[in-house]
Write a protein that binds this DNA or RNA. Structure first.
Length: 785
DNA sequence: GCCCGTTGTCATCGC
DNA sequence: ACGCGATGACAACGG
């Protein structure tokens, strides 16, 4: 019967979906076709060309949409999908051993069927239930309200049994498939064990439709897209396909405004179908599949489970078990009563409400917020490509929906990437019906993974771009979106050093051409000894003469390029600034700087030749500095260089040696003042330049670091998401496989898997779990306080 | 001749 | 109070 029902219901659902799609103007063929590529990618590896298609269809294909709904191969398809997913997950996922241990006792035949075509409610993977990373918080919230539909398999929620899944058993897709109906020996053993352990605990079976959830997530995405602009897919379509999207609305009771669990709304599959058709929000795909939903509060359960899982995940993965127990306990959410648990879900803020009800640890509360962001993550990933690499799109044409998403989501990027989210990834998605984020969440594992990969690629591209200086508008956009931290408007163009380069290049072009050594060293050099070293030789203080020019030339040569070497950007700087060397107004000896003198700046070039060859006095005078001329005219007995560069003491001694008139003394003091001021000015300018260059360099480094960190973050997020998805699927899988002593599945609304600190997994009544969780929660709260 | 960069100088501030 | 460095502003100079 179950099989028949499943297939039949599936067919109906499929049919309705198709109709809705058609009505929506959606090109079904294309849609289906599009789904294919993802599969290829999964198998053969992602193709850039398909990336976009992935966006829309991966989930669907993964969920089995690509397969004809009535196809007998659905089971096979599902099994294949699982295998693929698992294989894929092997690379990335770092699932704690506990997760693995939780593996399913046996598999529901029904689940398989449902999974293929639509998210069959039975299918374990249904997102609606708890662990959806993909699901945006909103989606989760929705589920809270309506999501229960997914969980539908209320098999009457047999209470009595608690089942424990031994750690060892790891899911083997193949086995599952094979085992659909019949319990394997292992399964039986496991059940026995679980039973023994948990007999006291009533067990209901929750059914998580992973596929449906995914679909929902897709629907959400689509909704986002639609919201964004393209509403190509009518709600009916969504309803048919994805209920999650709809869920957002569904959760909220139109009349009361409260979110109402779907199960409540849709006791019977048929009813749900109607609802879906009529009310997009209410039902998830899973519902239709579900023959009956005796249990009123599937969503709540799902959320609770989700939260539980999330808490576990957080504890184990994120926090490394430190608080595992508390969280676990807390994880069991309370709202067993939830029947109408609607209240929980319905509560204005799904997150908060759910959190509170479920008694999740405070951390989880926080996380939920995070989760919202996370939920958006997929979108982010999606966004990334669009944002950063619209061009990347192999096809060159992003589907409008995608574009919309990206555009819409782009605004959200900050939130999505919000640092807070890591934990949130695990947190159940909020029930809120809102927005884009949800849509993104809906991505199924394969789909999400693909997106993530693409995202990473994008990130890498971004990183490159950033390293290159974020020249690209995209990069800048990213920055802006990611963080508006720096008010600096550094030129995003080209290479980080570009500004400096440009500047330097210009100057260099002008000045450097002639002089090889023209590097203007740090002003420090100027202050440095050069003058002093020269001074002794200059002692003679030939006031007149060509020396000034010579000195200039020498100064240029003297500059020490090595210092600039430290600053890469400076390498290109060829400014003639002779900040380093003090002017030697008069050099008795040129010999001081024989070699160096050869190097001249552009300006000095002209003079030097003449001066070197034969410095005619007039010529020299002509080019001599005013102070030099004045000194000559005043017959100052020593060089301006000495006047300027001698230490105060020596300078005073020098003055004392020579009996000078007041005008001479005044002139000497002026010369000294001006000379020092000149060097100071040079140093000042040099400092300015260096400061600018350093700032540019710093900006570049920061950008690069930022890009790197962003990339790392995305990688972590991806890993987390994958783990979360894995856990979710495992949870659903396990839970769906569990049977009470009567062989009936546990009601998701009544029972939840509880993770023990030792890695054991117990099936506990939610009420009991909630009680247990409350205490720890309080403790945690207290701690936080 | 104008523009722009460089350099020198002055005035001022602060140490 | 003085010396000195730093710096903004201005002008001269040269490409």
């Amino acid at each position: 019967m179950l099989y028949l029902k499943k297939y039949f219901t599936e067919g109906l659902i499929q049919f309705t979906i198709l109709l809705s799609l058609i009505g929506v103007r959606v090109d079904v063929d294309s849609y289906l076709n599009n789904q294919l590529p993802p599969l290829r990618e999964i198998i053969l590896g992602p193709t850039s060309a398909y990336t976009q298609t992935q966006f829309h269809n991966l989930r669907n294909t993964l969920d089995g949409y690509g397969i004809h709904p009535k196809s007998v191969d659905l089971d096979h398809f599902f099994a294949t999908r699982r295998l693929l997913n698992q294989v894929r997950s092997l690379d990335h996922l770092q699932v704690p051993s506990t997760e693995v241990s939780a593996w399913l006792v046996h598999r529901d035949p029904e689940t398989v069927v449902s999974a293929a075509g639509q998210s069959s409610p039975s299918i374990t993977l249904d997102n609606g239930g708890g662990l959806e990373d993909v699901n945006s918080p909103e989606a989760s919230t929705m589920r809270g309200g309506s999501g229960t539909s997914e969980s539908t398999y209320s098999q009457g929620g047999e209470n009595s049994l608690g089942a424990v899944a031994p750690e060892d058993s790891q899911e083997q897709p193949g086995e599952r498939d094979n085992n659909n109906d019949d319990l394997t020996k292992e399964d039986i053993d496991l059940i026995d064990i679980l039973w023994r352990q948990d007999i006291d605990l009533g067990a209901g079976r929750e059914v998580f439709n992973y596929s449906s959830r995914q679909k929902e997530s897709e629907a959400e995405k689509r909704n986002e897209d639609e919201k964004d602009g393209g509403e190509e897919r009518p709600e009916s379509w969504r309803n048919g396909l994805n209920l999650e999207e709809d869920q957002p609305p569904a959760p909220v009771d139109g009349e009361t405004g409260e979110s109402i669990p779907e199960q409540l709304q849709n006791p019977v599959v048929t009813s749900e179908l109607r609802d879906t058709s009529e009310e997009a929000p209410s039902t998830s795909q899973g519902l239709p599949l579900l023959p009956v939903r005796p249990q009123p509060e599937p969503q709540l359960d799902l959320e609770q489970q989700w939260q539980d899982i999330m808490a576990i995940m957080e504890l184990q993965d994120m926090e490394v078990n430190s608080t595992a127990e508390g969280s676990l306990d807390s994880s069991h959410a309370t709202d067993s009563g939830g029947g109408t648990g609607s209240s929980s879900s319905s509560g204005g803020t799904p997150e908060s409400s759910t959190m509170g009800e479920f008694g999740l640890s405070r951390s989880t509360l926080i996380n939920q917020d995070v989760s919202l962001h996370q939920a958006s993550l997929p979108s982010c990933s999606q966004d990334f490509p669009t944002l950063f690499n619209p061009d990347l799109d192999p096809n060159g044409t992003l589907r409008p929906a995608l574009l919309r998403l990206s555009s819409s989501n782009s605004s959200n990027i900050n939130s999505t990437y919000g640092a807070t989210n890591l934990t949130g990834l695990f947190a159940p998605p909020p029930l809120n019906s809102t927005t884009n984020l949800t849509s993104t969440h809906t991505l199924t594992d394969p789909f999400s993974s693909l997106l993530e990969e693409s995202m990473l690629d994008e990130i890498s591209l971004l990183d490159l771009a950033m390293e290159e200086g974020f020249s690209q508008a995209q990069a800048s956009q990213l920055e802006d979106e990611l963080d508006s931290d720096s008010g600096l408007s550094l030129d995003s163009s080209h290479s980080p050093a570009s500004p400096s380069n440009s500047e330097t290049s210009c100057s260099s072009a002008a000045s450097s051409s002639s002089t090889s050594a023209t590097f203007s060293e740090e002003g420090a050099v100027g202050y440095s000894t050069d003058s002093e070293a020269a001074s002794p030789e200059m002692e003679e203080g030939a006031v007149g003469g060509y020396q000034p020019e010579y000195s200039k030339l020498c100064r240029m040569s003297y500059q020490d390029p090595s210092q600039f070497g430290s600053l890469p950007e400076l390498d290109n700087v060829n400014h003639n600034h002779t900040y380093n060397l003090p002017l030697a107004s008069s050099y008795p000896d040129h010999s001081q700087l024989p070699g160096s003198c050869g190097k001249k700046t552009g300006r000095d070039k002209s003079l030097p030749h003449q001066s070197k060859l034969q410095p005619p006095r007039e010529f020299l005078d002509k080019h001599a500095s005013r102070d030099e001329r004045r000194a000559r005219s005043m017959k100052i007995p020593f060089s301006n260089e000495k006047i300027i560069n001698l230490p105060v003491e020596e300078f005073n001694e020098l003055l004392a040696k020579h009996h000078l008139s007041e005008p001479q003394l005044a002139l000497i003091r002026d010369i000294r003042r001006r000379g020092k001021n000149k060097m100071a000015a040079q140093n000042c300018r040099k400092r300015k330049l260096d400061t600018i260059l350093n700032l540019e360099h710093g900006v570049h480094d920061l950008r690069r670091d930022k890009a790197r960190l962003l990339k790392e973050k995305m990688e972590f997020l991806r890993s987390i998401r994958q783990m979360k998805q894995k856990v979710q699927s495992l949870y659903q899988e396990v839970f769906s496989q569990l049977r009470d002593e009567h062989g009936r599945p546990y009601s998701a609304s009544d029972y939840a898997l509880q993770y023990g600190p030792d890695g054991s997994v117990l099936v506990m009544p939610r009420s009991l779990a909630a009680e247990q969780s409350r205490k720890p929660d309080k403790k945690q709260k207290d701690k936080k306080k």
